[in-house]
């Protein structure tokens, strides 16, 4: 089984790795690039814990092969804070206690940021539909939605 040489940009840095063609982008990020913030919940596209942006599009990294990322740009949860300064979404998740075990959180933050980049003033309904592919077994979702709405409001004021 020959491995493929993959060159990508991850959170702004040039990254290279060798991928077995059967490995997903999620496997490659965690096992070859050492970025373990992106989580595997289901491995089949149902839970959203593995959400990343690929060339600016929100995707499940468990449904993308590592080799498909060649020449592309990947943004993960590790790229969200600027140094020690948390992104407003991250801060609001803490303030609103929008996480318990935290396993779903990286995926939800990446997905929510993709929404706010596109639509800075979403309705609650739009947030709920956008995040329908992100499952959380702990919070019951309400706190997550409130945190996203609050972060959106803060980002609009800052803009």
């Amino acid at each position: 089984m020959s491995k493929h040489h993959v060159t990508t940009t991850v959170n702004g840095d040039a990254v290279e790795f060798l991928a077995d063609p059967r490995e997903t982008l999620l496997d490659c990020l965690r096992d070859h690039v050492g970025l373990t913030g992106t989580k595997e919940g289901c491995g089949t596209g149902d839970c959203g814990a593995c959400s990343v942006e690929l060339d600016g599009t929100l995707v499940c990294s468990c449904l993308v092969l590592g080799v498909e990322a060649n020449g592309k740009t990947v943004n993960t949860i590790e790229g969200m804070a600027s140094g020690d300064a948390l992104h407003p979404l991250q801060r609001k998740f803490i303030e609103h206690a929008a996480l318990q075990c935290g396993f779903c959180t990286p995926g939800i933050l990446v997905a929510a940021k993709a929404l706010l980049d596109k639509n800075p003033d979403p309705t609650e309904e739009e947030v709920r539909y956008w995040l329908a592919g992100n499952l959380c077994r702990c919070t019951g979702y309400d706190k997550i939605i409130r945190a996203v709405m609050d972060a959106a409001a803060e980002l609009r004021e800052a803009a």
Partner: peptide
């Protein structure tokens, strides 16, 4: 078809 993430692909 699927979620926002699935729609991206």
């Amino acid at each position: 078809v699927g979620s926002t993430q699935v729609q991206g692909r």
